[in-house]
Design a protein around this nucleic acid. Structure first.
Length: 282
DNA sequence: CGTCCAGGTCTAC
DNA sequence: GGTAGACCTGGACGC
């Protein structure tokens, strides 16, 4: 790996993926698809352009990085693209006659945030509001962070008046602030959820549900970003989209779960791919 | 203008 | 266990 000053940081591990950005701020341009965002690398914030080149994921920065920063950036990008995930067991489930067989070309690599903390907070910002409100809230958070998502300590020490008056987060502000305080104080280690290894999904789900502002929808959403694909993300966007795609007039949550149960631990990923196939241009 | 509700969650029955 | 109401905010509506 090399990096800085126009030299790309590249990853030996091949990814064949259609990255799906589920959370702002992110923009995908194309072709060729480029994903850009500012990342906090050590003490400073750098803009990083990430793209696929010859079967490799390449991250490039405008400014030259120290080798320690290259190391750190590599770590962050590997997390975001979940490079340690092996989706082959999922692909093995998708036979020729499977409606999701198309996904075996490399779909399903969910793009996460560099930290679990960021994914948790942003997910709270998607609840019970319009997408434009989510964008407003996350833009304010990024502004507070000086161009990148703020550290837990920053959010913990920011007064409630900022949450209400600037970010206009409404009742979510208290949830976000209290989670930030827990993390900043060391009482809660959200990042450990990413490397929870063989810890059962149920246990991870319970941990998430204990957080203020995190309910069934948010827990399932964060788990998808953690590479735990068993839960279906059920909300006011996915439910109607499912109905539209299947031509059904109504469908209980239980019947949607049943319809995807055959994908086992990948049921939630299969559901997500089923719903977002039209996001992928062919 | 008032009402409804959006990529829900919490509390109180 | 299941369900009603409240909850910040701000667009999209109907009147």
């Amino acid at each position: 790996m090399r990096g800085g000053g126009g030299e790309p940081v590249s990853f030996a591990r091949t990814i064949r993926s259609h990255g799906c950005a589920t959370l702002p701020p992110a923009r995908i341009e194309g072709p060729p698809p480029v994903y850009r965002r500012h990342l906090r690398v050590g003490a400073r914030i750098v803009e990083v352009a990430m793209r696929e080149r010859a079967g490799r994921l390449v991250a490039q920065t405008e400014t030259r990085l120290r080798s320690s920063e290259v190391e750190r950036l590599s770590e962050l990008v590997a997390r975001m693209f979940r490079l340690s995930d092996d989706l082959s067991p999922f692909y093995a489930l998708l036979g020729r006659d499977d409606p999701l067989h198309w996904a075996t070309q490399g779909a399903g690599r969910i793009l996460a945030s560099p930290s679990v903390f960021e994914d948790v907070i942003k997910t709270i910002c998607t609840t019970n509001c319009t997408w434009s409100a989510t964008q407003r809230m996350t833009a304010a958070l990024t502004e507070l962070g000086g161009g990148a998502f703020p550290e837990p300590q920053t959010l913990a020490s920011t007064p409630p008046s900022w949450y209400a008056g600037v970010a206009r987060m409404g009742y979510r502000g208290a949830y976000v602030r209290s989670i930030a305080k827990l993390v900043a104080s060391g009482a809660l280690d959200l990042e450990a959820l990413r490397d929870a290894g063989p810890t059962a999904d149920d246990e991870v789900e319970r941990s998430l549900l204990e957080l203020p502002g995190i309910g069934p929808y948010a827990a399932a959403h964060v788990m998808l970003l953690l590479g735990r694909y068993g839960r279906l993300v059920l909300d006011s966007w996915t439910r109607p989209k499912y109905l539209r795609l299947t031509g059904r007039r109504r469908a209980a949550d239980s019947s949607m779960r049943r319809a995807f149960a055959r994908y086992g631990p990948y049921a939630g990923l299969a559901f997500w791919l089923f719903l977002t196939r039209d996001w992928i241009e062919e």
